Amino acid sequence: MTSTVNKVIKVIDNIINYITYAHNHLLSVIIFYFLKQKPFHVHLPSPTNGYHPAVLITGTSSGIGLDTTLTLVKQGYKVFAAVRKEEDAKKLYAIFKELINPKQGNLIPIVMDVTNKQEIQSACTFIRNNLRRETPLIGLINNAALSINLPIEVASEDAFIDSFNTNYFGLVNVTKKFLPLLREGHGRVINIGSIDSWNAPPTMGINSSTKAAIRTMTKIWRMETRTMGIHFSLIEPCAISTKRSERKTNDFRNFKSFSSTSPYYYDEDNDNNISPNTLFNYSNLYKSVGENFGKFEISMPTEIVTDAITHALTSPYPMDTYYVGLDSKMIAALSWILGDRLIEAIESKIFCNV
């Protein structure tokens, strides 16, 4: 996709966002008026008053997490940036030291693997001790994720376990641990999902399943905490261009065999009931998806996700769901209008040559 086309798509996407945000604001005002509810509390940094509300972000070593971290720091927030490795924490702090920071935001890297309950508890204790009365925790951005692309039958059990432990249970455990602090600060939870929760091509079923679980959980949790002054938003991005996603997409497009590119490929010694002919068919499917995937992908910069996160964090009427990117909006709309059968028939024709 050329840069000119991407710029045009971004402009169109921004126009739709402005219209959507305005419509959401107007509708929220009307609904809140008749239901006698107040807008959600907004915490904006004020360097002149020394007010730097705190935000915790997971998965900040690269991509969306890194861009959001640096953006919120520049806006004056105190950001606790969670990474899995000590070396990532050191790299992150080095980037912060070079940052132009006129609003005096702060960045504190913390090592926290979202699948490790002990590290989650340690991070919570550290953050609670680091906060002051005038520095409440007002936001949790659950961004850490693991993406595995494999046909479901040939994926090992670990592929499912690791995906749900990171994408779903990790998110749930982190949120549960920090909800008491967020209640004290009348804060917000922002979960990074994916448009794959609505519709995903073959071989992406494991990742799509975790994102669908996140979508449902976010909705229910939002209703359960509505009277507590906390709001849950879901961000559902399209394909986002990062170094990690580019490497993954290139592997896909190069039609490499899934047996040689994924540690989550099935264990032949334990799953030898899968016939060679079945494996051959899945290999052809994987190559077909890879061959056609890039033709319909519109990769957008991470900043469009950061913009949505900032709106969800700072608007008095945050949206429940943000469809980020033009293709994300189109997929959500078409899935609702056309229904599963027609969408699956179209995808089979595009990706599976059926």
Rank of each mutant, 00 (worst) to 15 (best):
D267C: 12
N272A: 06
R222S: 09
H311W: 09
T210H: 03
R215Q: 08
D271L: 05
S315R: 10
K287T: 00
S245W: 02
Y266R: 09
E291N: 06
G325Y: 06
K243I: 10
I304F: 15
D320K: 08
A212R: 06
A312R: 11
T216K: 14
F293S: 09
D267E: 15
E224I: 02
Y264H: 13
Y266A: 01
L313T: 12
P237F: 05
G325F: 12
T278F: 08
P237Q: 07
P318M: 10
D251Q: 03
K211E: 03
N277S: 07
E236F: 12
Y264D: 15
N273L: 04
I206N: 06
K219E: 10
L285V: 03
C238P: 01
I274K: 15
F255I: 00
T218H: 09
K295W: 03
A239W: 05
S208H: 03
R247M: 09
K211N: 09
Y265V: 01
I220R: 13
Y317E: 08
Y317A: 08
E303I: 14
N277V: 07
R215V: 08
S233F: 01
H311V: 10
I214V: 14
A312W: 11
I304L: 13
I298P: 03
E246A: 02
N281L: 14
T302R: 11
S283H: 09
K248D: 00
S260M: 11
D320R: 14
P318Y: 06
E291W: 00
K243L: 15
S245A: 12
V305R: 04
P316G: 11
I206H: 04
F252E: 01
Y282C: 00
N277F: 07
T249F: 00
E291M: 02
P237E: 06
I309P: 01
R253H: 02
N272P: 01
M217Q: 03
S233N: 02
F293A: 06
N270R: 12
V305I: 13
A312G: 02
M319T: 04
